[in-house]
Design a protein around this nucleic acid. Structure first.
Length: 846
RNA sequence: GCCCUCGUGGUGAAAUUGGUAGACACAAAGGACUUAAAAUCCUUGCCGCUUGCGGAGUGCCAGUUCGAGUCUGGCCGAGGGCACCA
């Protein structure tokens, strides 16, 4: 028998699919659609194992749905704007466009070698004018709808990348790409008004039943809704200020009020601009730590003003007003009322400045003499020491009561606050989508007329300049609108804007007048299954959900507003890490295992330190190159292995042995195929063999069920089981009956995972044209014979095989003949017998 | 600190609804074939005694149930998210 030549066969099928545009899709209203989308890749150079896993998972689903008769949209594109291109281009004196496009070409070629069922006619690239011109139109639409605005704001400034970062792009106080410590800087920036949709984005999560709870929780926390009230505190002092507004979730602790704290960026700080002490204090604030954690744990410091705030519920009480480093300007009103007894931060602050600490809530198990001592009490309880609030249950009842009173007295009102801040989209970078506006002499913003779109990026520019390269493009910056000289906006859009609507573009990739066609959206959207990494749980997914709402705002472009019906987040691909004696990272290629010990390939006398398995990353060198693996083992083997070892939502360990065994399995399947082919030529096709019919039905049922549930690792196990069974079956049975028909069905079940192999075998058996997902005979699934587990006091003692639906009486007669059971129950009181048909018989004895 | 998720053999993991725990695979040990190796195939896999049988057993402790990996409560451990959000 010849070996399975995966090189030739995979190449043949890939060519066949490509030549026949096998995966090209168009609207077909007679068919149910299925939009299967995997997060599109950033064209960094080569594909990595994470891509292999992500796109294999998606491809299995897309192929399965196609076989089920769905009209499947399965597109692919490129998230092609972004910093790496600009940096690579700068360092190598290239055009970012050339760098990017060449990476795209390489990666597209690699993806094709995986045998993905992608409609490449719909390929898009966010850096092409064809794409970003529509994004510019969207931007202007949002500007018109007042969902985009410009404001001066403190921003997260990355000093290495010389650009602004969104809050979400700052991780532990460092830039997510550069790792540089992020600085605060005041700049004029463009913002998307995402906070306008806070409530709606929160509510929308309720309907996303097939999203992982983890992701929904993360989004809920990020949106951060809290219920409370705003309170106007009257103030007295030497400044022309009457009132300071605060937001609080605990107005019920107002009688524990002992200071009022302002953010150093609070408008009132303008009165202190010339106060040297204040400036010194401000300086000190900026020094306290850089990571969020350091700030959270760090010292609380304050600057006392001469102002005094009056307790709205007790006008005789006046407390000092401080500036404090722990108050954030962009949450609430940048001012908080301090209640040290029941808020740990306030407690720390009060201790430091020797302010009064009053106890106004007691825990349920304490009496009225309870006093806060070493730490604040923030838990539930009963209000004490608070005049008319005494006895109220805290927090719920007491908060509602206090709000009612404050509203009656017009001292405050109910308020819902969100943590979600508006999305800053300005980036001081070249390689991004230009923002289609210009400024006149007075600095007024003018939207570019549509006729002047797209605003194209200038070419042949100098990327070596500091800051934004577009800023130094004086020719490009000058523009004339309606005869007036103006200056272009030189900021470009955050690349997350590009990925917020690409799923819409895939529906109408060639549409010229607008980003999409309504007809296409109505048919294809929403994405039925979205698949990608959990690292996008907040940013990309929240922005996309916002973008759909924003585009639809005021002009119903479409009827659905949630872009992704179902979400699946796959785990990462991990590999052991290796280091040499000097702690330098080693690539798996440099390492060899001899006698259970890891040593250097180049020098087997030198041992290698094996570290924990971590997600593959270039910096730790624990990467395996997919191209090399595909070349050596074939796409089907890689697909099989990447799915086999762990559930798709969990991390998977890359294992060379596992990879080899997947490869061998394909070879074994080929051996089985040839044996079956040889034997079925003289099988009696008109006769039934119930055994193989039943087995096939079980296989189809199991694989179908596991496909629906994303149990792709179990499908691989099902495939191994099927092989183990069939190889025995073929050896055992000399006279075959209807194996061929059943075997073909099994091959179709295998085809989503190993499409080249399965199609080759099907054609080898004479199948031409379309195949469909096989049906199975449900009645065959039920075993005619079942195992009854005989238990004594809940412990398994014996298994007896009986006909299905045998009644209790009959089973009891059988058991009477069973020595083992009889021995166990003799001389014992049988108190009760529990019988579950076809499953169990349990004796309770004393 | 707050929130979420998860704890099953040497390892990755299976176990539709509470009903035979460990499917499937990796690694290991032993064996067969071979002059030898590779490849392939078979067996084993916690404890106790004689091929069989008995016992323990799904992080720990309780509970519900005839019966718990699965349900409930508490504890311990690991991973992830958020973190001066008032």
């Amino acid at each position: 028998m010849n070996r399975y030549n995966f090189q030739d066969i995979e190449k043949k099928w890939q060519k066949y699919w490509e030549d026949n545009k096998f995966f090209k899709t168009s609207i077909d209203k007679k068919k149910k659609k299925f939009y299967c989308l995997e997060m599109f890749p950033y064209p960094s150079g080569k594909i990595h194992m994470g891509h292999v896993r992500n796109y294999t998972i998606g491809d299995v689903l897309a192929r399965y749905k196609t076989l089920q008769g769905f009209n499947v949209l399965h597109p692919m594109g490129w998230d092609a704007f972004g910093m790496p291109a600009e940096n690579a281009a700068r360092d190598n004196n290239l055009d970012p466009k050339i760098w990017t496009n060449s990476n795209i070409a390489t990666m597209k070629n690699q993806l094709k070698k995986l045998g993905l069922s992608i409609d490449w006619d719909r390929e898009i690239s966010t850096c092409s004018e064809d794409y970003y011109k529509h994004q510019q139109i969207f931007f202007l639409e949002l500007l018109e709808k007042k969902l985009v605005y410009r404001k001066e704001n403190y921003v997260n400034w990355d000093p290495v990348d010389q650009t602004v970062l969104a809050n979400e792009q700052v991780i532990d106080g460092k830039g997510w790409r550069s790792g540089a410590i992020v600085e605060r800087k005041k700049l004029n920036q463009w913002f998307f008004d995402i906070s306008k949709f806070s409530q709606d984005l929160l509510d929308g999560l309720e309907n996303l039943e097939t999203w992982p709870n983890k992701v929904k929780t993360m989004q809920r926390n990020w949106i951060g809704k809290s219920f409370g009230c705003e309170i106007d505190f009257k103030v007295e002092g030497d400044l022309p200020i009457d009132i300071i507004k605060c937001f609080t979730t605990r107005p019920d602790t107002l009688f524990g009020f002992s200071f009022l704290a302002l953010s150093i960026d609070h408008p009132i700080s303008s009165y202190f601009e010339k106060n040297k002490e204040f400036l010194k204090f401000k300086e000190e604030c900026s020094k306290t730590g850089t990571t969020e954690e350091a700030i959270a744990v760090g010292d609380k410091i304050g600057f006392k003003t001469n102002l005094e705030a009056i307790n709205p519920l007790d006008s005789t009480q006046k407390v000092p007003v401080y500036f404090a480093n722990f108050v954030l300007m962009d949450y609430g009103f940048g001012a908080v009322f301090g209640c040290p007894g029941h808020d740990q931060r306030d407690f720390d602050f009060a201790k430091k400045y020797k302010l009064q600490i009053k106890t106004v809530v007691r825990p349920p198990n304490e009496n009225e003499n309870f006093k806060v001592l070493d730490e604040a009490y923030a838990g539930p309880g009963i209000i004490i020491n608070s005049k008319f609030l005494n006895g109220f249950e805290a927090p719920i009842n007491s908060v509602l009561e206090t709000i009612k009173i404050l509203e009656e007295k017009k001292l405050g009102k109910k308020k819902v606050n969100f943590r979600l801040k508006d999305w800053g989209v300005s980036r001081q970078r070249y390689w991004g989508c230009p923002i289609p506006v210009a400024y006149d002499d007075t600095g007024k913003v003018h939207a570019l007329p549509k006729s002047m779109l797209p605003v194209k990026l200038p070419e042949n520019i100098n990327l070596k300049v500091k800051g934004n390269p577009l800023d130094s493009q004086t020719d490009w910056k000058q523009i004339i609108i309606d005869g007036k000289k103006m200056t272009r906006e030189t900021d470009t859009l955050d690349t997350f804007v590009c990925s917020s609507w690409y799923y819409l573009r895939f529906c109408s990739p060639k549409e010229n007048n607008y980003g999409f066609k309504k007809e296409d959206i109505d048919y294809w959207m929403p994405v039925d299954q979205y698949i990608g990494g959990v690292e996008h749980a907040i940013l990309h997914l929240l922005y996309s959900r916002f973008f759909m709402r924003a585009i639809n705002y005021n002009n119903k472009n479409f009827n659905i507003i949630e872009p992704f019906q179902s979400l699946f987040t796959q785990g990462m691909v991990c590999h052991e890490t290796y280091r040499d004696e000097k702690n330098n990272w080693l690539s798996p290629d440099d390492v060899e295992k001899i006698n259970n010990k890891f040593v250097l390939k180049s020098d087997p006398n030198k041992s290698v330190k094996v570290g924990p398995s971590e997600s593959m990353s270039k910096s730790k060198k624990n990467v395996i190159d997919p191209e090399f693996i595909i070349k050596n083992y074939g796409a089907d083997s890689v697909r099989l292995f990447i799915l086999s070892d762990s559930p798709p939502e969990k991390d998977v360990q890359w294992s060379e042995q596992g990879m080899v065994s997947a490869y061998k399995f394909i070879q074994k399947l080929w051996g089985l195929h040839n044996e079956i082919k040889m034997k079925i030529s003289n099988e009696k096709k008109d006769q039934q063999d119930k055994e193989i019919d039943k087995f096939t039905s079980q296989v189809i049922s199991k694989i179908t069920h596991n496909l629906e549930k994303f149990n792709y690792n179990v499908i691989v196990a099902n495939m191994y089981e099927t092989y183990n069974y069939l190889i025995n079956y073929v050896k055992k049975n000399k006279n075959l009956k209807n194996l061929e028909e059943n075997y073909k069905k099994i091959l179709i079940c295998f085809s989503p995972v190993i499409p080249h192999f399965a199609n080759e075998c099907l054609v080898d058996l004479g199948i031409k044209g379309d195949v469909n997902w096989p049906n199975y005979d449900k009645s065959l699934l039920d075993d005619e014979k079942v195992n009854i587990v005989v238990q004594i006091n809940g412990k398994k003692r014996e298994i007896i095989q009986v006909k299905k639906d045998t009644d209790e009486k009959e089973i009891l007669t059988l058991i009477k003949k069973n020595d083992k059971i009889q021995n166990l129950i003799k001389n014992k009181d049988v108190v009760k017998k529990i019988f579950v048909p076809n499953k169990i018989l349990n004796y309770l004895i004393k």
